[in-house]
């Protein structure tokens, strides 16, 4: 088993085992959706119009919950030293961690999105674009989150700081993601453009984040 695959599998195992918190994000996502539906009340036209942006915002906030733990757990038990000494390229390990985070946090959320869409009276034609935009955009969320976690790994409580760091970096993903979901629902030709920009953001994060995270981790080891 390659080291990359072993790291991804270990993180998934830890995430889905008791206390791992993999389902925290999807629970938060579902609760936010349900509470929002209750808050808006019986105006079905309004709720179906704003369902996609609301779900995108909820997904973005739900992803943030677990960012704090991506690196901190490894640092606190000494595993980070092991990752550093076994990684010829630390950025590859960062990529593995980001992938595991996406699989354990974002993927359950994407699976739950259509159900929440139904709850928020999202039109059937709009569910596809919502899921596609989440699939393309959420890897960027995990990758950027990995970087913020690496930057703050030596601080004991960094939730607030991580949110402050990632929020501006998440703005393009939110704009293009919610934009794509809305455009796709109404058959707007800008759907493709939004998706491409969303994909570009994720790809950009896929290149920059592993390198930046590795540098941040190394400087935080001291």
């Amino acid at each position: 088993m390659s080291a990359f695959f072993a790291l991804v599998m270990r993180d998934l195992r830890l995430a889905f085992r008791a206390g791992g918190g993999a389902l925290q994000a999807v629970m938060f996502f579902a609760l936010a959706g349900v509470l929002f539906a209750l808050a808006v009340g019986p105006d079905i036209a309004l709720i179906s119009k704003i369902a996609a942006p609301v779900l995108w915002t909820a997904a973005l906030l739900a992803t943030q919950i677990s960012l704090d733990q991506i690196w901190r757990a490894d640092r606190e038990d000494g595993s980070l030293d092991v990752l550093v000494e076994t990684s010829g390229f630390l950025s590859v390990a960062v990529f593995a961690k980001a992938l595991a985070h996406w699989l354990s946090t974002a993927l359950p959320l994407i699976v739950a999105a259509p159900m929440l869409g139904v709850l928020l009276n999202l039109k059937a034609a709009a569910i596809g674009p919502l899921v596609v935009s989440l699939l393309i955009g959420t890897p960027g969320l995990s990758l950027i989150g990995c970087f913020a976690g690496a930057l703050t790994v030596s601080l004991t409580r960094a939730h607030l700081l991580i949110s402050i760091i990632v929020s501006p970096l998440y703005v393009p993903i939110l704009i293009f993601g919610a934009g794509a979901a809305a455009a796709g629902a109404s058959g707007d030709p800008q759907y493709a453009a939004n998706l491409m920009l969303l994909g570009a953001t994720s790809l950009f994060a896929a290149v920059i984040s592993p390198l930046a995270s590795a540098a941040a981790l190394r400087s935080n080891l001291d």
Binding site: A6, L7, R10, R13, G20, D77, G78, V82, L83
Partner: peptide, 21 residues
């Protein structure tokens, strides 16, 4: 002094992970 052991994994899983790493 930190053991780098994951408490939620079994002894074997920890060892196997290191062996892969």
């Amino acid at each position: 002094t930190l053991n780098a052991v994951k408490a939620a994994l079994t002894v074997d899983e920890n060892l196997a992970f290191w062996s892969a790493l």
